[in-house]
Nucleic acid binder design. Sequence first.
RNA 1: GGAGGGGUACCGAAGUGGCCGUAACGGGGUCGACUCGAAAUCGACUUGGCGGUGCGAGCCGCCACGUGGGUUCGAAUCCCACCCCCUCCGCCA
Length: 425
Amino acid sequence: MLDVKFVRENIPAVEEALRRRRSAVSLEGFVDIDRKRRELMAKTEVLRAERNTASEEIGRLRREKKDASALMEKMKDVAARIKEMETGLPELERQMEEFLLNIPNVPDSSVPDGSGEEDNAVVRTWGTPATYSFPVKDHVDIGEDLDILDFERAAKIAGGRFCLSKGAGALLERALINFMLDVHTREHGYTEMLPPFMANSASFFGTGQLPKFEEDLFRVAGTDYFLVPTAEVPVTNIVRDEILPGDSLPLKMTAYTPCFRAEAGSYGKDVRGMIRQHQFNKVELVKICRPEDSWAELESLTADAEVILRRLGLPYRAVALCTADLGFSSAKTYDLEVWLPSQNRYREISSCSNFTDFQARRAKIRYRDGASGKTRLAHTLNGSALAAGRTVVAILENFQQEDGSVVIPEVLRPYMNGMERISKR
RNA sequence: GGAGGGGUACCGAAGUGGCCGUAACGGGGUCGACUCGAAAUCGACUUGGCGGUGCGAGCCGCCACGUGGGUUCGAAUCCCACCCCCUCCGCCA
């Protein structure tokens, strides 16, 4: 959510931001409603002030055993007028809220302008995709041939867009999660969190998934709980409605959670395999920091995620999302895309974003500035490091051998009882 | 699921219709005094949000005692609904 004062005073800049994002949101009527709202508020406050002084006076008169009935009678009228004014206010506030909750974050000036994925800017490429002297298989064929992935039985248990990992497949994914958490906690200074995998609607409003994107979520029937689509939701909301000591920043947290996404509107996309699932595992990085540090923190957070890909030896590239591809709450996002031999292209495996104060304003995440003693909104960032399911896909495909086996990256072997290769049993 | 207790500022806690929301009292914190320094002691300061105004430090007003409604000239206090926490019982990994 943007600051109402900022929007009021920077209508052209906000409209430009909406245009850059190719957003259909209009600011038509904003200024007018905002002005009406503030006028009504001012009028109401004058009456309330009158009521407050009169009530004090009544209290004083009664203590002195004097007659206050005339004043009380007069105040009945004032009370009625206050009530009348107050009935108009909620509607104006609702309309303002509707504007503010639907305006996306302003893209940073460094975000490339564009109208779709093809306009994203490649900022780095690492590693060289291997060449294969045999026809490459995709992860579904590799996994099923090795009997470590079972999509048919997953469909029986749950349905489409679910996966069942077995034996060395399950071990591989668990090893990846442990490896990632260990690197981030031991080497990058993040504190591990194991949060609830469901959260209430207030948390989802805080990070911006609600009210606009409810159709992407699974709701637990008859409750206020939604399954988390990313650890961003529970972890960022750890500090919701808090004023943090300035010297505690930056907070750096990492968490493994399963992620649940309805994937409404993506029918027919990536239907094969475990690229796009209703449930997948992910290790997430979350930072809460001072505004002046957030751009540097975005670079280091992205680098922290890249370390995982490099240690695994997976070729990847980093792209800066263009204005049209940018998420609703984000001011700037780098996607990390891993090479998939079966698709002969790079696919998203991580997304690292700076939300500036957009989530912090919604979630009331503040800190006390040591110098001024004032409270200020923090900046929030997060990124996947990495999506574990897609990392399994990348490992199976990139390290497949002609005999159908898959060589396990060295860094994972200690997490897999020294296993060097997954072979057919 | 049943019974009971509770939610007030950074923490504990008092307050049961007006003199109580920069909110008693205790603790903590910051600054200052004393001291060679520290402890102890003494003093001052120490909630957040919104609106208005000013170039600005600021000033004026409004709102908030878990949340939302209601009663009243006036609500932390009375009424209704909901949320959360704690204790005991039942069930349970």
